[in-house]
Amino acid sequence: MQINVNLFTVNKRFPLTISRGTTAQTTNVWVKISHDGIEGWGEASPFGVGNHRQSTDTIKNALEQVVPLLQTFSPLQRQQIEQVLTQNQVPSAARAALDMAMHDWLGKRVGLPLWQLWGLDRNQIVPTSVTIGINSPEGARARARDWLQFTDVRLFKVKLGSPDGIDADKKMLLAVREEAPEPEFFVDANGGWSLEDAIAMCNWLAELGIKYVEQPLPRGEEKSLAKLKEHSPLPIFIDESCFTSSDIPDLANHVDGINIKLMKSGGLTEAMRMVHTARAYRLQVMFGCYSDSSLANTAALQLAPLADYLDLDSHLNLIDDPFTGALLKEGRVLLNDLPGLGVKHSASTT
């Protein structure tokens, strides 16, 4: 199979600030595989968690180095290709792009969307949350108004873990709730709290009716999750602390759910493993994203009927998304009937 690697840059309508910094623009990687006259697409976006960082250059270089090793394979040989990628320590975002592209190719080969090929019911897809980054109370109010004008918001995900401390977190969250009293809320601290602050915030947030808290403690502080769970009245989800299915067993007794992201997992193949592993431990599942376009988010949505929560909104905040795929309707991002991932490029005539 032929594999092409290209870069494309996307810009956010509103820059997003979390506990680790602010992002306004990212350069992502578009992977195209061709075999038997069929083309499959995948996307990789850069991300960083603590000292673990996968930059655009890292992803692109890794793909270019492994491409010669994959050209003798067919997209149907995913197990063998996965072994090659593992042996060569290809970073997870690069693996995700290749895995997406092979699944897209397969769906196009048989003429079915992936959700249908897997026997899933797209009517089970829950509403997606939309994100409000760390901001001043006034700035957060304005961002909430923007979302409410843009779509029928059912869920807000509010980023906390402000460097100014939990008092700043509280003021910002209260401002958003005053501006948007109807939607439900959950909170993502992106590892921005200490154990003491996390316990205090979880109890305060529970009094406000927040649904759950995501990644309250930094990656590397998983040993403290047991104590937090003991003192938290809210469900605890983890994101940065959980990359693949192998991370779940050690964490399962101390959390209530996991956030699966294709860039962390390495693609749809491992994401499916994570869903089944989480269910085996009676954990809830959500799907999230980084600065992904409609290509990667529509790929993740193929598994969305299996999720309890969705946070797939990054493409909704782009002013120059080069792809179209799943469409937003009444707070839900809905899949289409096109084969494979169901994604088109804006320049495509087909």
Rank of each mutant, 00 (worst) to 15 (best):
T23N: 08
A24Q: 02
Q25F: 02
Q25G: 03
Q25S: 11
T27S: 13
N28L: 09
N28K: 11
V29P: 00
V31F: 02
V31T: 06
K32Q: 15
K32G: 06
I33C: 03
D36H: 06
G37A: 10
I38D: 09
I38H: 13
G40H: 05
G40Q: 07
G42D: 07
A44G: 08
A44V: 00
S45H: 09
P46T: 02
P46E: 08
G50C: 09
N51M: 10
R53S: 11
R53Y: 12
Q54D: 15
S55L: 11
S55V: 01
S55K: 07
I59M: 13
K60D: 09
K60V: 14
N61W: 04
E64T: 04
E64N: 14
E64S: 09
Q65D: 15
Q65P: 00
V66L: 14
V67E: 11
V67M: 07
P68E: 10
P68A: 14
P68H: 12
L69Y: 11
L70H: 09
L70K: 06
L70C: 09
Q71N: 15
Q71H: 11
S74P: 14
P75T: 07
P75V: 08
R78Y: 10
R78M: 15
R78V: 15
R78N: 13
Q80H: 13
Q80V: 10
I81K: 01
I81W: 01
I81Y: 03
E82W: 15
V84M: 08
Q87T: 08
Q87C: 04
N88D: 12
N88K: 14
Q89L: 15
V90T: 12
V90W: 01
S92W: 00
A94I: 07
R95H: 02
A96I: 05
A96Q: 07
A97F: 02
A97E: 01
M100V: 11
A101D: 03
A101P: 09
A101Q: 06
M102E: 05
H103C: 06
H103I: 02
H103F: 14
H103A: 06
H103K: 06
D104L: 08
D104I: 07
L106C: 11
L106Y: 15
G107N: 02
G107M: 09
G107T: 10
G107D: 06
G107R: 05
G107P: 00
G111S: 08
P113H: 06
Q116M: 10
L117I: 03
W118G: 01
R122F: 04
R122M: 12
Q124N: 12
Q124P: 05
Q124L: 15
I125K: 05
V126A: 10
P127N: 05
S129Q: 06
S129F: 11
T131N: 07
I132V: 15
I132L: 14
G133E: 08
G133T: 09
G133K: 05
G133I: 08
I134Y: 03
N135D: 15
N135W: 01
S136D: 13
S136W: 10
P137G: 06
E138M: 01
E138P: 00
A140I: 04
A142Y: 07
A142I: 10
A142S: 14
R143D: 12
R143I: 12
R143S: 04
R143P: 10
A144R: 04
A144K: 01
D146M: 13
D146A: 14
D146I: 12
L148G: 03
Q149R: 14
T151L: 05
T151D: 09
T151G: 04
D152A: 11
D152K: 09
V153A: 07
R154W: 03
